[in-house]
Design a protein around this nucleic acid. Structure first.
Length: 433
DNA sequence: TCTGGGGTCCTAGGACCC
DNA sequence: TCTGGGGTCCTAGGACCC
């Protein structure tokens, strides 16, 4: 197998630069929801040594001092540019897995083009046509392609291959980057915690056993790995050996749980405000549920105060509401969510966050019982209308809850870029003369 | 004043059944 | 006094990913 991992560089920051040519070489950071933390940085910002995940209030003076451009997160823009990248890839490579908003695995076997020239072309086209820089790692398995991708990011040509990938492809061109010996060299220089699937906790345990690099990990005993790092870990070991063991998810499997949760812009004390927020979050989660043609049986609700404010009284609680039958019908879901919230709400606390989690998810088509035999056409029609309104006016357009004008639970987004690509009224302007 | 929001999979342990 | 063994389902929590 020859698999490529194409990864957009500093994706959110790169998206913000697409319509701002004045920012080309400038350091840019993108904030989390609620303008809380720094979650993405352009290369220039990374080079200044800003830690990822640092709260904005701690970084503020540094950002100002270094004249760094700061953006609130604009997920509508990122999702739209991501879709364009993925569409371009799937038009050239029939077998691929969209792994995250900014990454895709591509199967390069049995294509007319050789792997490396094709990757160069894809990378160039994404840059020229969409304006997003990317890098590509090529290898016999996903885990090795991830490692190759990490090296590609540091190279000026943005491409790195582990093994004889062109020979493995159509067989016509000389090997591009190396043979087995070179794979050993690269793995020997890859710290074990840089392997996909091995994070700090696991890495610490491995290091205690003398396993410090990807090369060490590749050599461990199968039975030992199965027992100590589970089958998930054993698959990583096999992949390091070049044996494909992690499946390609060509079509995204339906979600087994759908979450909607956001911190508030200000502390919230009033039950009515919390109910309004939970209605909004439930509407967002339910829209995702319907978009994958599923229904859910369980709704988890939880709420919490701000754990960082140690001087304040803390309270957090959650509850699960079971529905009589699986449903995707928003009024029923909202009613259940409100019931759950009322059962755990306590007066007198300053709340930071509420969350909705839909689970017990089943496909609508597979549903047994009254719902399937006797779907209520009025309910389906209402939900279709809700979904088309949301497509037009945004995900929070309808939530079965009367929204009051001064809802101060809404998140802060004080440095939001325009919706360049999805709203006519926010298209970039070209000045002439 | 200000600290993100999604997801997946795995294991352990309890309840319950035969 | 003696108090199995195996299976399933559920939940909580840990660990990992972006």
């Amino acid at each position: 197998m020859t698999v490529a991992l194409l990864d957009c560089n500093s994706f959110y920051a790169s998206c913000e630069k697409v319509f701002r040519p004045d920012l080309v070489e400038r350091p840019v950071v993108v904030l989390s929801n609620n303008d809380g933390c720094i979650v993405a940085m352009s290369r220039e910002a990374k080079n200044l040594g800003i830690p990822r995940g640092i709260p904005l209030f701690k970084a503020r003076s540094f950002l100002k001092e270094k004249n760094i451009e700061v953006f609130s997160s604009n997920y509508v823009l990122y999702a739209d540019l991501s879709r364009r990248v993925m569409d371009l890839l799937s038009s050239r490579v029939p077998v691929m897995e969209v792994y995250s908003i900014d990454e895709a695995f591509l199967i390069l076997d049995h294509l007319p083009a050789l792997p490396l020239p094709l990757c160069r072309e894809l990378r160039d086209d994404i840059q020229r046509g969409i304006g997003i820089p990317s890098s590509v790692g090529v290898a016999p398995t996903k885990v090795l392609a991830k490692i190759a991708g990490g090296i590609a990011k540091k190279r000026s040509d943005g491409i790195f291959a582990l093994g004889d990938v062109d020979a493995a492809g159509a067989g016509a061109s000389p090997p591009a980057f190396g043979h087995e010996k070179d794979i050993d060299l690269v793995l020997g220089e890859t710290p074990v915690e840089d392997v996909w699937g091995i994070a700090s906790r696991l890495a610490k345990r491995l290091r205690e056993r003398g396993i410090r690099t990807a090369l060490d990990l590749r050599k461990v005993d199968d039975a030992w790995a199965k027992e100590r790092i589970t089958l998930t870990g054993l698959r990583i070991v096999w992949e390091l050996r070049g044996i494909p063991s992690i499946v390609m998810e060509e079509v995204a499997p339906p979600k087994k749980g759908i979450m909607s949760s956001k911190s508030f812009g200000h502390p919230v004390t009033d039950l009515e405000d919390l109910l309004e927020a939970i209605g909004d979050y439930t509407a967002r989660a339910a829209a995702k549920l319907r978009s994958q043609e599923s229904a859910c049986r369980l709704i988890d609700i939880w709420l919490t105060t701000n754990r960082f404010r140690e001087s304040e009284r803390q309270y957090s609680a959650g509850t699960v509401v079971s529905l009589a039958e699986p449903t995707d019908y928003l009024p029923d879901l909202v009613a259940a969510a409100r019931r759950g919230l009322k059962s755990i709400y306590k007066d007198g606390y300053r709340y930071k966050k509420v969350a909705v989690f839909l689970s017990g998810i089943e496909g609508m088509k597979g549903l047994q019982g009254d719902l399937f035999r006797n779907p209520d056409p009025r309910k389906s029609a209402l939900m279709a209308a809700v979904d088309s309104m949301a497509a037009r006016y945004g995900p929070g357009a309808l939530s079965c809850t009367a929204m009051r004008p001064s809802n101060d639970w809404q998140m802060r987004r004080e440095m939001l870029s325009p919706l360049y690509t999805t709203r006519w009224d926010q298209l970039p302007q070209v000045r002439t003369g």
